[in-house]
């Protein structure tokens, strides 16, 4: 079977790739486009480490066929900072020690950003339920939730 030719907007730039029909967006990001910031923790949508934005919606890259993305907009962790300026969430994760091993961090950040875009002033409970699809085994979630709430406050002030 011939490969699919897919044209996307990836982190703001036009990006084309060829993919096998059964390959996922995660496969293509990591293995073909060398964007390894999107992590594979489970490959079944249960851990959220591969969270990306697809046409402005939070999805798991492992549960998306690469071939589906033709004409679509993809945002990954590599596009989160504005050039050399970290996104407030990235900065707050650092300041709050909200990462230990850091493997869940890219997915957490993408997921948290999606939350704050919809809900600039979430409660702790709303943060916890929104992030329920992003597993972290190191932090017990305390400092992640604190960092998200603090980043939300900062974004509201901005």
């Amino acid at each position: 079977m011939a490969k699919h030719h897919v044209t996307t907007t990836l982190n703001g730039s036009p990006v084309e790739y060829l993919c096998e029909p059964h390959h996922t967006l995660l496969d293509v990001l990591r293995d073909d486009l060398n964007l390894t910031g999107t992590k594979e923790g489970c490959g079944s949508g249960d851990c959220g480490a591969c969270s990306v934005m697809l046409d402005g919606r939070l999805v798991c890259a492992c549960l998306t066929f690469a071939a589906e993305c033709n004409g679509r907009t993809i945002e990954t962790i590599e596009g989160m900072a504005n050039g050399t300026k970290l996104h407030p969430l990235q900065q707050k994760f650092l300041e709050h020690a909200a990462l230990q091993c850091g493997i869940c961090t890219p997915g957490m950040l993408i997921s948290a950003k999606a939350l704050l875009e919809k809900k600039p002033d979430p409660t702790e409970e709303e943060v916890r339920y929104w992030l329920a699809g992003n597993l972290c085994r190191c932090t017990g979630y305390n400092k992640i939730v604190e960092a998200v709430l603090d980043a939300a406050a900062e974004l509201r002030r901005a």
Partner: peptide
């Protein structure tokens, strides 16, 4: 499912 899963 999660927010991610519900996105799809």
């Amino acid at each position: 499912g999660s927010i991610q899963v519900k996105g799809r």
